[in-house]
Every structure is written in structure tokens, then in C-alpha cells.
């Protein structure tokens, strides 16, 4: 167990460091999430009576689609120079590779949400303070569920030619 945690931490820290340098996950997904929120803000005729119903759906679309985009990028880093083979050839438990990558992906999605949610609140004029703790709990739990399934499917399809589209399809299938 101790060894598993140590290996997971090593892979997680490596992912954080490469992300800080490359912004492979955050760079693409952040802009995408913001764009989704802005586009839907103009696309729908939002009124005080329908905004609360529509807004939650829009927020989840932004999170899930940008998360999917980020998952693809997350494994793109491992495909470059066949680093995924470097990981699988090392004597680490496969579980630690999975949990290290999952922890990294959850962290990056949470970072995006920390920025996107305030923008969302301003644009849609939603009062989230009333249910802030509940909303935060739901978001974190969903992030965990989404990224746990998403990372597994991305890893399984990482060596396939059309891996991005296939893993996205399977991910939504599992989530639904």
C-alpha cells in the first residue's frame, strides 16, 4: 500500500510538472469551457424564470466536454516518445499509473472549475451561495466519477489509432 502511494505520488507530481510546463490539459480545456458558457449565454433566450433550469445543464456540458478534451490531451503526453511504454516497462504497479493519472486529471479539472464557476455565476446571474457546499460536493464527486472512468478508458484506448473519438464515445456511454 505504501509503495502504491509512493508510485502514485511520483506519477501525479510528474503530471503536474509537465502540465505546468506544457499546459496541455489546462490550455485547451479552459478556453473551451469558457467558450461553451459564453456561447450558450447568447444562444438561449435566458429569463429569470428559465435560467436556473438551463444554467445547471450548461455548466455540466462545459465541464464534461472540456474534461473529455483534457483527457485526450493528458494521454497525448504519454504517447509522445512512447512514454507510455516507459511507464509500462517500469516495475510499478499498474494501479499506481492509473491512480496517478486520475489524480492529475481530477486536479486539473478542479483548477478549471475554480476559474469557470465564478465566470458562470457572473454571466448567468445565479446565486450559488445558498447551496454552495452541496454544489461543491456534487461537483467534486462528479469529477471523481468522471475522471475515474475517463482515465481508465483513455488508458485503454491510448494505443489505438482513433483513440480520442473511441474513448469519448465509451466515456459518455459509461456515464449515461
Amino acid at each position: 500500500m505504501r509503495e502504491l502511494l509512493r508510485e502514485t505520488k511520483t506519477i501525479f507530481l510528474k503530471d503536474v510538472l509537465t502540465e505546468i510546463r506544457s499546459r496541455a490539459f489546462l490550455g485547451t480545456t479552459f478556453m473551451f469551457a469558457i467558450l461553451v458558457i459564453i456561447i450558450f449565454n447568447f444562444a438561449f433566450e435566458l429569463r429569470p424564470d428559465n435560467t436556473p433550469k438551463l444554467a445547471s445543464g450548461i455548466l455540466w456540458i462545459a465541464f464534461l466536454f472540456s474534461g473529455t478534451l483534457g483527457l485526450g490531451r493528458s494521454f497525448q503526453v504519454e504517447r509522445e516518445n512512447d512514454c507510455i511504454n516507459g511507464l509500462t516497462l517500469s516495475p510499478v504497479d499498474r494501479m499506481s499509473i492509473y491512480w496517478g493519472k486520475t489524480a492529475g486529471n481530477i486536479t486539473f479539472l478542479v483548477v478549471i472549475q475554480i476559474v469557470v464557476v465564478p465566470v458562470f455565476i457572473v454571466l448567468y446571474n445565479i446565486n450559488v451561495m445558498e447551496h454552495f457546499i452541496l454544489m461543491t460536493t456534487v461537483i467534486i464527486l462528479t469529477d471523481f466519477g468522471f475522471m475515474s472512468v475517463g482515465t481508465l478508458l483513455s488508458a485503454m484506448s491510448a494505443n489505438l489509432k482513433n483513440f480520442s473519438s473511441l474513448s469519448s464515445f465509451c466515456r459518455y456511454l459509461f456515464l449515461s
Binding site: 510528474k14 510538472l17 509537465t18 506544457s22 509522445e80 516518445n81 512512447d82 512514454c83 511504454n85 516507459g86
Partner: peptide
């Protein structure tokens, strides 16, 4: 193992 590919991370 030394392969055709380096197994190295460009950003590290």
C-alpha cells in the same frame, strides 16, 4: 530498454 523512441518527456 533503449527503443526507437526515447520514452522521455519533452517538457521535463
Amino acid at each position: 530498454v533503449i527503443s526507437h523512441k526515447s520514452f522521455l518527456y519533452d517538457d521535463l
